[in-house]
Design a protein around this nucleic acid. Structure first.
Lengths: 215, 215
DNA sequence: CGATGCCTTGACCAACCTCAAGTGGCGTGG
DNA sequence: CCACGCCACTTGAGGTTGGTCAAGGCATCG
């Protein structure tokens, strides 16, 4: 987030920033609550989700270190967020952030980029949810996670999956059982090897990318 | 789009704008093409979609008069767009638009709002695609269309559905047959009445909203 | 060592998809 | 004006993917 910014901008941002720690399972923001803060993830993982009245939920995305949440723009949060692992973040109160925002055009530009990237990711995820099979969904999930980790220079052997089966299911629009069966299927096809539940070894990346049917 | 802007800004925008007309079925932009233009819809309807190699497609949204497409930011288009009815639009070449963009902070702010609204809509649509039943999907589609038309002061009796069954299917992540059957079901439940294929009379809006399971 | 939480596996089921045929409106041409 | 073909939509029968419900495995932790 802050990579593109200059010295003065960073100092202004730092002056309004506070630190926060969350345990796994702790809620960060709830849909419809007053959007008083924006956040930047330092470590850990956060899921973003929407729920129906009867408890069905859809995770629309998840945040890893470096990711941003809570556009300092208007009204209430439109989505809920909850830590899925112990998480550290920077917290920016909204009004001061807006002032920094107004002061530096660059900051605004940067935000526009962030939101636009989120929108592009959302469009791809809609294709997944609307048209892909269970195997394609899980493969896509793994491939995207791989690329995301690699982009920030992390190790991918093993690949640490930040979400539990339950959250993967809610992310991919499946049930936990189908996710589990599909992991097993990929293992039997020798495309991946399974370590502990949160570890996956990708054995045949090419085939995994094929199976993902990435457009 | 232009409502929030001042005189000078509008004049600058107009000076770079050109007009365009599309027939139903004509393509406007294709995913991965150079993003040389941005557009603002004046009349008609445009679908936005992503495709898989084998032809499966997912419509991620559709544009009605007033809507904007083609953030003047970076790189190539990330999505395809095609007119679904005769359509008029304003076309802005990218580089000049960027200059207007840089000149007026307000324009940039406005764009940020537009993109953010799109993102919020995308998150809601993901909930629909991942977790809702066919009846809930179609009801949600109709309720949202109702609200959208009402917001811009249009008539909703009959409600003109801008998409064909095929496109509704691709939008809702269903098949055309399921969409048709679900329309029939809503008719048999006396929640709607069907006129010509593109006309729907909403008979029991409250029940329709209930069936939509809008969070 | 039991309890708990998370994951896997199995048997069965249902929502939705596929494939196929039928309906109806509309424009065209005889 | 009617016959025809076309296209979009509807309807039906049967199949498949993924969901549901239930049981079992396997770590971790007190």
């Amino acid at each position: 987030m802050c990579a593109a910014l200059g010295d003065g901008e960073l100092r202004d941002l730092e002056s309004i920033m506070t630190h926060r720690r969350l345990d796994a399972g702790q809620s960060l923001v709830i849909e419809h609550d007053a959007g008083d803060y924006a956040f930047n993830v330092i470590s850990g993982a956060v899921k973003l989700y929407k729920s129906l009245a009867d408890g069905r939920a859809q995770i629309t995305g998840y945040l890893l270190p470096g990711d941003f949440l809570g556009l300092p723009l208007r009204g209430n949060y439109t989505i809920s967020a909850e830590a899925v692992a112990p998480t550290e973040l920077c917290q920016f109160p909204r009004e001061p952030l807006k002032r920094v925002f107004d002061k530096y055009e660059k900051v605004q530009e940067r935000f526009l980029t962030v939101v636009h990237d989120d929108l592009v990711a959302a469009q791809e995820h809609m294709l997944l949810l609307g048209r892909k099979t269970a195997t394609e969904r899980l493969s896509t999930f793994l491939v995207r996670l791989l690329r995301r980790i690699e982009r920030v220079g992390g190790g991918v052997d093993p690949l640490y999956v930040p979400l539990h089966r339950n959250d993967i299911a809610d992310y991919l629009g499946l049930t936990i059982e189908t996710v589990s069966r599909t992991f097993t299927k990929l293992r039997n096809d020798e495309v991946i090897r399974l370590g502990k539940a949160d570890q996956v070894f990708v054995l045949d990346r090419e085939r995994l990318e094929e199976m993902a049917g990435i457009d």
